[in-house]
């Protein structure tokens, strides 16, 4: 069940929890852009990645998320690392081919390939961690209210943004329920002799079908009943509704936006100016 805690809201009273979801969404976008900025050289890139990592860890500690949850979600990135290493080893980027790490037979593996793969990996890790912090510290309903606020301009085009945000919040609400279904069906099928772990591709594919078909059926039945329950409680996507949760912008939100904005600005400036702190400040040339 621990793996199912992924992306779930973790109730706690932290400063990050108290921020307005709109603030958090805005900051998330800025921080993700920051994470994907390119810098003057590898040393600066990894220095900035380190700074971002410290920030992310600080948020992480604040929200009282469990580290195991993060590690679990990053576990599957191993696969990604190997994949990226392979790609860059076979097709190294053409600039920076003078710095060979080692040879496999006669084939040179460049440091650039390894560092590029690591760079992408670190970016992905940071992005995942940031998104997890958002979902752990924000109730799904607040999150969708935030989305809805950003989408509200397209309401003038005749799009029912409230209905779409309801769809989104229901999806978020039912993810844990459906994950429990997955587990239940897998157990039931395993007890009938279906093996999800081993076997040839065709066997595994058949095992997957034995999971997906009942899952789709049970989800359809759920949605049928849910529709009845919602209608029975007076939900009408076209009618005017009030909102229990009002989004409110506080001082803390302003401070958060300013801080994240400043960090973003600094990173963009460093990126655009190809600023190298090692050269400029410490007068050492590092790659």
């Amino acid at each position: 069940m621990a793996s199912l805690s992924l992306g779930r809201y973790v109730p706690y009273r932290s400063p990050v929890h108290f921020l307005d979801p709109r603030t958090k969404l805005f900051c998330l976008v800025l921080l993700i852009v920051t994470v994907f900025l390119g810098y003057a050289n590898y040393s600066t890139t990894f220095l900035m990645a380190g700074v971002s990592l410290v920030l992310v860890l600080a948020f992480f500690l604040m929200t009282r998320m469990r580290f195991t949850a993060l590690l679990k979600s990053l576990k599957s990135l191993w696969f990604m690392l190997i994949f990226l290493l392979l790609i860059y080893a076979i097709m190294p980027r053409s600039d920076n081919l003078d710095w060979v790490a080692f040879f496999i037979g006669n084939y040179p593996i460049y440091w650039a390939s390894i560092l590029d793969a690591l760079k992408i990996l670190v970016r992905l890790m940071l992005m995942i961690a940031l998104s997890l912090i958002l979902t752990a510290s924000t109730k799904p309903l607040d999150l969708t209210a935030g989305f809805e606020w950003y989408l509200s301009p397209i309401r003038w085009l005749g799009v029912n943004t409230a209905a779409w945000s309801m769809v989104l919040s229901l999806a978020l609400r039912f993810i844990p329920t459906i994950l429990v279904d997955v587990e239940r069906i897998m157990k039931a099928q395993s007890s009938r002799g279906v093996d999800f772990q081993r076997g040839k591709l065709s066997v595994r594919a058949r095992a997957l079908v034995s999971l997906i078909v009942p899952l789709v059926v049970s989800s359809l039945m759920r949605s049928d009943e849910l529709a009845d329950a919602m209608e029975g409680r007076g939900y009408d996507p076209r009618a005017k509704r009030t909102r229990y949760r009002k989004l409110a912008f506080h001082w803390g939100d302003l401070i958060a936006v300013l801080l994240v904005g400043a960090f973003f600005g600094m990173c963009v400036a460093m990126s655009v100016l190809s600023f190298d702190p090692f050269l400029e400040w410490f007068q050492v040339a590092v790659r």
Partner: peptide, 28 residues
């Protein structure tokens, strides 16, 4: 209804009870 999961609309108990009130456009 029968299935407790399929009629829980809100993210929390509070939000779920509020759901019907929102639909009736009751003053928040």
């Amino acid at each position: 209804f029968q299935n407790p999961d399929n009629q829980f609309v809100g993210a929390t108990v509070r939000d779920d009870i509020a759901f019907g009130l929102e639909n009736r456009a009751i003053d928040p």
